[in-house]
Design a protein around this nucleic acid. Structure first.
Lengths: 355, 355
DNA sequence: TCGGTGTCTTGAGTCGATTCAAAAAGATCA
DNA sequence: TGATCTTTTTGAATCGACTCAAGACACCGA
């Protein structure tokens, strides 16, 4: 390791360590001549300040941890980019950690970050109600939940996932679909649950308002719209493909005509499976994804998707965190909620005529 | 911040600080009764070990920095995942930093990581010949170049980009293309240059071996294959789209029949532009990308792409780093080079008949 | 020459955990 | 019981940078 320390610099510049420290931190109070001597010594020795020691003394780090469910998901890459951009302006470093939706990994990262005394933690939790998050906050590490609303105990930024699910449901129903599949991820992930609730509410509203209260054969009670939900083990392209294959294997009369996937990775996988089994999108199967990642627009069939302000989520999270760090006393926890919006593309843009 | 420190724990457990430290680090040398008392005190006080102080004392951190050109590129997400997986097994944390291909940002991250005295740095440099990297190594922070071969001064893992470019070129020529466009990123990025060199060599080999040495009208000297190269300002979907639009605007007789893009993001953007301008892929324009990210297979037209062992790159980089850290004296810098392989999909899978 | 007033510089003490020589406590045996 | 090991525990010194009260120094006017 760079063994040159402030002491050696002081020796070479023929000043005390205090003066070197002053040059580093408040150069204006040091006389120009001394300052120059010190800078020269620093350059000559290739001195690099030991941030660890500095941090130990001043007790405050300039890094924040960002724990996401899946680094490989472009949605989180965009959130991270937003966070990074704002953090950068405040001379702060964002370290990105991947929990891979695994509570154990999440816990390990939380422990590591707390032990490193980071300035704060932004997290998209596997389980938002975990007591660990409250403990962290209580012990003094501010936590901001990202893409997941908090119950007042901490700050959070989120997009209204129920609304997003609702919009997607209304859209599909409006396009004439009467049997819809929801492809979710693990139930434990709150976003999945909320998006499911959203489309569920859209479906039951459709039942209530639909004319003719008779029970149609094969339809749900009180209306013609039926919703099936499958919860896959992960929100990945591979599991989307699995779901798609399972759907393709169903006999036509049982098969839904539309799928709402809890994120775009699932949707892209699902779409691939449709192509592989000769099902046309949107004719045989309409698809709506979630997140509106850049790749959604570039898919085999351009994908309809519920969009979220991804970078803004990241920026806002950093903003809330910095606010809390700056004035821990005055700070009141806030829950910021953004609105999703549906981007209709080819994958669902077809009016389905009744059978 | 968690203000409970080892001293308070010691007080409550009625032992010395040395004993608490022992319980934390070598519990087996402490008698069971004492150990229990200490653990109880830790639990009761909610003590969290201060990794900063520990690090200052032992002089060695358990984190490595990984600086990539673009976090939003799934290629790097996969590399990061590979690195993370292996690091995890060694109880080491990977922090991901984004240089966004900007030398200034890269430098800032290098500075920060060095100041934090990380165990080592994995980097896909904007400029591999930058003296900063050598300085870092000289001052004691091991550096491993990722996806970019080193000249013996440090370790590196890479994929043979010239070979990759060559394979792509041979494939397109073999499919009958005689006018090929190379869509690159900034020339300063080594990968871009190498991939260009690769396809250039494929083209000149084709000229040499092609029967009939006559100069064809519109063809290059000595053969019928022509290569044009455009270097875009960034390896992004947006710039791919720009390139595609520029190509689409060309009169048919001047327009290439195939494009080899320096990465899949460019290729996906290029593909979108083709669709937007009514050019059919692969009939009017064949496309080959690079990296074979998961989204390549899911594109509007499934994308041919030169594949790289992405996660293995990350794993190997960590492996080399750990090896160097473990035995700094014995360690000899190594350059690991993997082979790329072309995955042919629909976007280039068509034999073009001569005009 | 002295006191006063700024401007710089100094260096011991501090942050929290680890280390290790040395002391203390136990165990074993003659 | 005392001598000799062995097992535990102790606590001062240490890592490197920062802080701040106190000291050194220069300059000015009386």
């Amino acid at each position: 390791m760079s063994t040159t320390n402030i002491k050696e610099v002081a020796q070479r510049a023929r000043v005390s360590v205090g003066t070197v420290s002053n040059v580093l931190n408040r150069p204006e109070i040091v006389s120009p001549a001394t300052r120059k001597r010190v800078f020269d010594a620093i350059r000559e020795l290739g001195f690099v300040r030991n941030e660890v020691a500095r941090h130990l003394r001043v007790g405050r780090s300039r890094t924040v941890g960002l724990i996401v469910l899946d680094v490989a998901n472009p949605f989180f890459a965009d959130v991270a980019q937003g966070a990074d951009a704002l953090a950068d302006e405040h001379d702060t470093m964002v370290v990105l950690c991947n929990s891979a939706a695994d509570p154990a990994r999440e816990l390990r990262h939380l422990d590591q970050l707390e032990q490193q005394r980071v300035m704060g933690i932004l997290i998209t939790p596997v389980d938002a109600s975990s007591p660990r998050l409250a403990e962290l906050a209580a012990r003094g590490t501010p936590v901001v939940l990202v893409d997941s609303a908090a119950a007042g105990l901490q700050c959070s930024v989120a997009v209204d996932d129920r609304l997003g699910g609702h919009i997607a449901g209304v859209h599909l129903i409006e396009r004439g679909h009467r049997k819809i599949l929801f492809v979710g991820g693990p139930r434990s992930i709150k976003q999945v649950g909320d998006r499911h609730l959203g489309i569920t509410s859209a479906v039951s509203e459709a039942r209530d308002t639909e004319p003719g209260g008779g029970v149609e054969p094969g339809g749900g009670p009180g209306g013609g719209v039926e919703l099936v939900a499958w919860f896959m083990p992960a929100l990945s392209v591979a599991h989307g493909r699995t779901a798609g294959e399972r759907v393709a294997a169903l006999p036509v009369e049982e098969r839904p005509t539309a799928a709402f996937c809890a994120n775009d990775l699932l949707a892209l996988g699902f779409l691939q499976a449709m192509a592989a089994h000769g099902l046309r999108v949107p004719h045989d199967m309409a698809i709506v994804g979630y997140d509106d990642i850049d790749f959604a627009a570039a898919a085999t069939v351009p994908l309809s998707s519920v969009g979220q302000p991804r970078e803004l989520l990241g920026r806002t999270a950093i903003d809330l965190l910095l606010e809390e760090v700056a004035e821990p006393e005055l700070h009141r926890h806030r829950q910021v909620i953004f609105q999703p919006d549906l981007v209709v593309r080819q994958s669902s843009d077809l009016h389905r005529s009744p059978p």
